[in-house]
Every structure is written in structure tokens, then in C-alpha cells.
Amino acid sequence: MLDDFLIRATLAGLGVALAAAPMGCFVVWRRMAYFGDATAHASILGVAIALALSVSVFLGAMAMALLMALAVTALSGRGYAVDTLLGVLAHSALAFGLVAVSFLSGVRIDLMAYLFGDILAVGKTDLALIWGGAALVLALLTWRWSALLTATLNPDLAHASGIDPRREQLVLTLALAVVVAVAIKVVGVLLIAALLIIPAAAARPFARTPEGMAVIAVLVAGLSVLGGLQASLMFDTPTGPSIVCIAALIFAGSALGTSLRRG
């Protein structure tokens, strides 16, 4: 069954959706959208370094994403506004990554595959990594769910309940790095943030509780993957961007429906 590239692509996409959607809810609730974007962009430098050292691209991307996220966390509040800092670090990392890739003359690298994803080329090893990573993210989020939510609501409220908000921030940062690493193959570094934010945003109007929003976001992300794959086969369009387009259409429908309902 896994010999069919389409089945592998579908499973890979669903694996990423399963991890990215709940993570994306926290990104939206904590207003970390730009943070997520910056972390994802930085990972291309990790890809370049990994290729140069002939180590796993997955690990390289994850390490770089983690490093980036930790650097931003450590540097914020030291004279620069966070958005300025993110703009500097993210685009620098992206630029250095692109330059670094150009030095790798020995290997022929399809840069587009890392920038926009290449879900149809997902192999069995990739699939194992994606589902392993997704399982890790889900386990991490489920384990810390209540503490993460409390810290997201208010850091002092968390302290009063014996929760250290900085530790929860670290858990989220770690989960984000894993999501970035598993999503590169599917949508590429430039569109990872879309897969985090759009399903969560589309789910918001239909949810009454945080848990409800996470579940609906997973459904939206899954639907986007299936629809995007189908559309890309029908119209012969790039798959990663097609997935994001479907997610965007669902978001538009959700937003329109909400405003009509409110009259």
C-alpha cells in the first residue's frame, strides 16, 4: 500500500496536519504568527548545513528552527522590538541559507523542493519521520495542555497555580521546531506558517472551548491536505501551495459564514 506515491503523500500530509493544527492554535492564541513564520524561514539554513555535512535534513532543519526560536526568546526585550528582531533574524537566516545552498556544488539540489515542499516525493523514511514527529508533538501538547493553556491566559495566574510560564514557553518552542521540521517536505519553509495559522483561524468561529478549536483545526487542515492533493492532480499545480489555497478557501468560507450569521 505504501508503494503508491499518492498514498504516501496523503499520509504525509495528514500527519503534518495532525501536528500543525493544534500547534497553530497556540500560535494564534499567543499571537506568535510572525514568530512561527520566522522560525520556519530560518530552517532553510539548517537544511543547507545538513546537506553540507551529509546529515539528516530533518535534524538540521529542526536544530536550526530550535536555535532560531531560542535566540529570539533570549534576545527579545533587549532594546529591539520583537517584530524588528524577528525580521532581522528570520530573513538573515533565510538569505544565509540560500547562499549556503548555492555553495553546495557537489550535490544537485532542488531548492524549490525545500522552499515549497515536494509532498509527492515523500519516501517511506520521510513518512516514518513525519508520523514520529507528529506523534511527539501531539504527546507533548497533550501532556502539557492544561499548563500551556493557563500560561497562555496569564503568566501570573500560571505562577499562582505552581506553573512556570517560561518552561511552558520552552515546550511550545520545542514543539514548533518539530512541526517545522516535519512540514518542510510537505509544504516547504515558506508556507509552513500558513499551515499553522489558517486552520486555527478558520476553526475559531465554530469553537466554544480551546479543545474544540484544536479538533476543528485538525479537521480543516486534514480537509485542506486531501483537497489540495486532489486539486494539484486535477489541475497539475504545485501540491504544497494547492494545500494552502484550499485552507485559505475554507477560511474565507468560515469568515463569510460568520459575518452573514451575525447579520
Binding site: 499567543r30 492544561s146 497562555t152 491566559l153 495566574l157 483561524a201 475559531r204 469553537a207 472551548t209
Partner: peptide
């Protein structure tokens, strides 16, 4: 045992939260 009522609590409008769910944070 300490109960804490913070000065202000700004709940982001993107975070859906019923009163009942809020009461069960962090412990059910």
C-alpha cells in the same frame, strides 16, 4: 493554599473559553 485574583486578565478574542472551562484550569 492561596487563591489569586489578578489585576486584569485580557483573554485574546481568538481563544474560545467558556466560564466552565476556565474554572477547570489548570486542574479539572
Amino acid at each position: 493554599s492561596i487563591g489569586y485574583v489578578p489585576q486584569k486578565l485580557a483573554i485574546d478574542p481568538t481563544l474560545p473559553m467558556t466560564v466552565a472551562r476556565f474554572m477547570s484550569l489548570p486542574r479539572r
